[in-house]
Design a binder for these strands. Structure first.
Lengths: 246, 246
DNA sequence: GAGTGGTCTAGACCACCAA
DNA sequence: TGGTGGTCTAGACCACTCA
């Protein structure tokens, strides 16, 4: 067994933290891809020369971050944006009944461009780097409610085209995963109330100046690596954004 | 030791779930109040006739819900809204730097009234029950940014007056805890973008119709008991609402 | 030094799933 | 039936706090 007490005092880290980091590294290296099963707890315990309980605690932490998913009797899997529930994982908009539903997707444009200083900062890339810009409408119950402006670093999403966006009706995160091997595991959102700009008002068929919910989102892959910036403008007359506090 | 396997198959619940429920009941019964230390893990293990590890797992669950707080070397405490960090627990509004700060509080009114059907439904009380209505401004960096309308069931907050609201500058949740023994442990929020009504626009010194973030919050005490309804209207030019997704 | 939470182990047994 | 995750135990030892 590993000698716990001998670890460097100045950089003391519990064993399960170290194992958590090693598991994360394996995910970054692509040893296990989204949707796949990882080795059993006993196998991992043998690999890392620790007890099953310690591996379990490391996995617990990753499960609570929605990075891994346990299925009793089957195994532990890499979380993906596939499946009915997972597909809506990052969607916080719900109807009057509090229920969420996958919207329809209507592509407006998908072009290559160069990153402005503002965008470069959001994506942690160099100003002027190649980016891909997507604009689209999201349609709930037949009503266009969200105008999305999405920016991706072109280097990681090489060859992405509007055709692909169309094919993956509405679920871009599933597309990132399946076509580019990039699973998004978290996001940070800043929310404001703004007046609808002319272009957006026209697309959503609203009067210019109508109040809209502006959701400024940066999405991250493993290791807090920002790989998508998204600015959504939402009409919140029928639908609303929901959050739970603890 | 308790016989785990003998528990009713139809209603099988892990031991630690049962213990979690018993701990929650003790909190509801007021055995331990906000800010107080609960018995040590060994003491609880002896009381419930289980191992320390099982008590630990029950406490883990309550800690992850922010209901209990561990302090290594000292003990496990009932979470409260006191203290610098805890005070801002339910505040999601942050400045341009992403930092949160406790706002100043300016009371507009505090009156007794009867619950309309809408309010009664939110607070799960009978229509026509006595309620307390508070209106106030929250002031960040000298700017009035939030117009709050707060409704409480009068039965649980007997004798609450504007004077008390003033004394607990801005931190109502601390007041609920200290004066009425009611710790809020969670909340559900619905967020929309709306036009400022005349009354609110005047109070915040804005043009009528300015887009504001409307935060409709129900706050809960132990056992998901709703005890506060709050409708906040926020100017989000300088500050923004922030959320993290996983 | 005594008491608390935090980590780790080894092993037993249960619940669930698939073949 | 065998493999997976899930629960529970008993005991050792570490890290932290405070008197």
């Amino acid at each position: 067994m590993m000698n716990v007490t001998a670890s460097n005092v100045l950089s003391y880290q519990p064993l399960y933290e170290q194992i958590k980091r090693m598991l994360t590294q394996s995910l970054i290296d692509g040893e296990w891809k989204a949707g796949e099963m990882i080795p059993s707890e006993m196998e991992l315990a043998a690999r890392f020369q620790v007890s099953q309980g310690t591996v379990r605690k490391a996995i617990d932490a990753l499960v609570s971050e929605n990075i891994l998913t346990r299925r009793q009797g089957k195994g532990t899997y890499v979380s993906s944006h596939n499946g009915e529930v997972q597909k809506l994982r990052f969607l916080r908009l719900a109807g009057p009944d509090g229920k969420k539903a996958l919207p329809q997707n209507q592509l407006i444009s998908c072009v290559r461009a160069k990153a402005t200083a503002k965008v470069a900062k959001k994506l942690n890339i160099k100003s002027g780097s190649a980016i891909i810009e997507i604009k689209r409408l999201l349609i709930f119950d037949g009503r266009p409610l969200i105008y999305d402006h999405i920016v991706l670093p072109a280097q990681e999403f090489n060859g992405l085209s509007g055709k692909q966006v169309d094919e993956y009706k509405g679920s871009l995160y599933r597309m990132y995963e399946e076509l580019y091997g990039i699973p998004m595991v978290g996001a940070h959102e800043e929310i404001r109330a703004v007046e609808a700009p002319a272009e957006v008002a026209a697309a959503l068929k609203l009067k210019k100046g109508t109040p809209l919910l502006q959701i400024d989102r940066i999405a991250y892959s493993y290791g807090n690596r920002p790989l998508e910036w998204r600015l959504g403008l939402c009409l919140t007359d029928y639908y609303h954004y929901q959050a739970d506090l603890e």
